[in-house]
Design a binder for these strands. Structure first.
Lengths: 107, 107
DNA sequence: GAGTATACCTTGTTTTACAAGATAGCTAAC
DNA sequence: GTTAGCTATCTTGTAAAACAAGGTATACTC
């Protein structure tokens, strides 16, 4: 049981939340997640999630020139994505309350 | 993306925590988790996890007679399990801080 | 034109969550 | 004594997720 194995599904919500703050592209997202403390997210994790989120119509993308390197694919939230993010907020609150209750029962 | 899909790996820690409070058997654990708010954990989820935790030597079991029905397999934490639980506490705190930071960035 | 950094994507493996169903013990009622 | 119902555990099979590893391509600098 490692840190990263706890995150399944939660990353989706975090990614949606970061995208909501402003358009980002995958490569940038990887370093943002790293800054936040998610150290173990390689691009092999992030790109498939972005593709899945777009397939589910939660995010949309536009290509823009990079200052150095190939074109960047910038993502932004769709309306459906905003709804999903709001729903994730509630699920996360409930989850974290439940887990905290279990972990701190005896205190 | 449903509630239960966020829980991967976290349930392990919650189960360890509940077992630490006192010996429990699988069937009882299912209803305890339900009481705490994890509504969607069937026995098909819980028993395989118990088996895995025991295989990893984090918990140990003893059979005891039931008042009604077949014998119950009571689980308790091993020393290794207590270490893992402590480690889970830290991982959970870090995770929940990180996620809360991301979700409440703009507030 | 070689090297380096940027940027994206794919493949294959392992683990997880879970639904569904199999198995079996005990008690009570009939 | 057998049926019904609750208790209790376990197995099988499926789908999805996380990830490591590797592949491809663009642009800048020297």
């Amino acid at each position: 049981m490692q840190t990263t194995q706890m995150l399944k599904g939660i990353i989706d919500g975090c990614i949606l939340s970061i995208i909501q703050e402003g358009e980002v592209y995958g490569y940038e997202l990887a370093s943002k997640l790293d800054d936040y403390g998610f150290e173990s997210f390689s691009e092999g994790t992030i790109y498939p999630i972005l593709i899945r989120l777009q397939k589910d119509k939660l995010i949309q993308s536009t290509l823009k020139k990079s200052t150095a390197g190939p074109k960047r694919k910038y993502y932004s939230l769709t309306e459906k994505g905003e709804g999903e993010l709001a729903s994730f907020h509630m699920r996360w609150n409930q989850l974290s309350n439940t887990v905290n209750q279990i972990l701190h029962k005896g205190e």
